[in-house]
Design a protein around this nucleic acid. Structure first.
Lengths: 179, 179
DNA sequence: GAAAACATGTAAAAAGTTACATGATTTT
DNA sequence: AAAATCATGTAACTTTTTACATGTTTTC
């Protein structure tokens, strides 16, 4: 049950429309949580119905017209409750390592090496992007708790991509060696 | 669509019953893919129906009685096809970083620091466990491709836990500093 | 013979993915 | 006026989670 809380957090940081939220999920929030626009619109509908958020301005919302939402006090309370909840780390699920392991029983082919290289490039790209965000952030202030938390989370994104690039390098070195 | 392929891989490595598979998913396969017994039994049923695996021995399967499965040729072919598929890295989804970010807008309390410490301990535990597996593996042979792939995947599990412990240490240092 | 451990399942709900539909606004 | 982009949504499906149900074998 994290999506509604991700949306509440994003809306508290800045009231937004569904599409704007989708874009923010592709950027900063996306370091650790992703969502499609379909998920977001559905969830916005639920949150509005539950009285946790409300649409601004629009009395007569028509299709195709921008609709901005803001968080209501009950929404903020719900988020405050949720941050105090204990939840264990989630089980990892990564198809790439599964595929690699499967090659151990059905045989490889150079295909898997290509695929690992491709993934390495993708992670490298994302890493570069995050480092660019970091560079930009360094210019801005870092006084508030919010800024520090943002920085920590971005650092998490960077470290995670670094993990991937490093592990993929090792895997490629190993497989190219004798593969 | 990875669960059926995870099961096919596990069954090729060694024919097993549903409960045995569940245990193996909690151990080695669990480095990067998890599944509950409910998921596994349902999927075994589907795979059997699709003719990719078959139950051994049992002609009259009754509830509560062990049922072992093995992979049929068509199952192996399906797995061979699947390892060649290109699939982009999956979007990360981690509620902990989401909760941390939420504290940036609703305020922290020492609660989050406690929660980060708790997660650090859990990751540290798992890391120790994986290193124990690594130690044991080192004794065994490493000649076959299968052994090498297993070792790479285990290394991935270790590196991922190391990422968490390192990042959590950094986060704790930062938050305790001024928190 | 009671309890614990082993073993297989069903059902319902929640979350996520994929495909499709449609209207409004801006640019060329 | 056509095309591109902005914007919101529906529907069907798949996957995952949670709660429950039940039978068998081993151990004390």
């Amino acid at each position: 049950m994290s999506l509604p809380h991700a949306i509440l957090t994003a809306l508290l940081e800045k009231p937004s429309s569904g599409l704007e939220l989708t874009r923010r999920f592709d950027r900063s929030i996306g370091y650790f949580w992703s969502a499609t626009h379909q998920q977001i619109y559905r969830e916005l509908g639920k949150l509005e119905k539950a009285g946790l958020i409300r649409a601004l301005d629009r009395d007569v919302p028509t299709r195709g017209q921008k609709k901005e939402y803001e968080v209501l006090p009950s929404g903020r309370e719900e988020l405050e409750r949720w941050v105090g909840v204990r939840e264990d780390p989630r089980d990892p699920r990564d198809p790439l390592l599964l595929r690699l392991r499967a090659t151990g029983v059905v045989g490889v082919g150079g295909d898997m090496v290509d695929e690992l290289r491709r993934h390495r490039a993708l992670h490298q790209e994302r890493l570069a992007e995050y480092r660019e965000f970091e560079r930009r952030d360094a210019a801005r202030g870092n006084g508030t708790e919010r800024d520090r938390v943002h920085r920590l989370v971005l650092q998490g994104g960077i470290d995670l991509e670094l993990f991937w690039v490093t592990w993929l390098d090792r895997a490629l070195a190993d497989l190219e060696d004798t593969g």
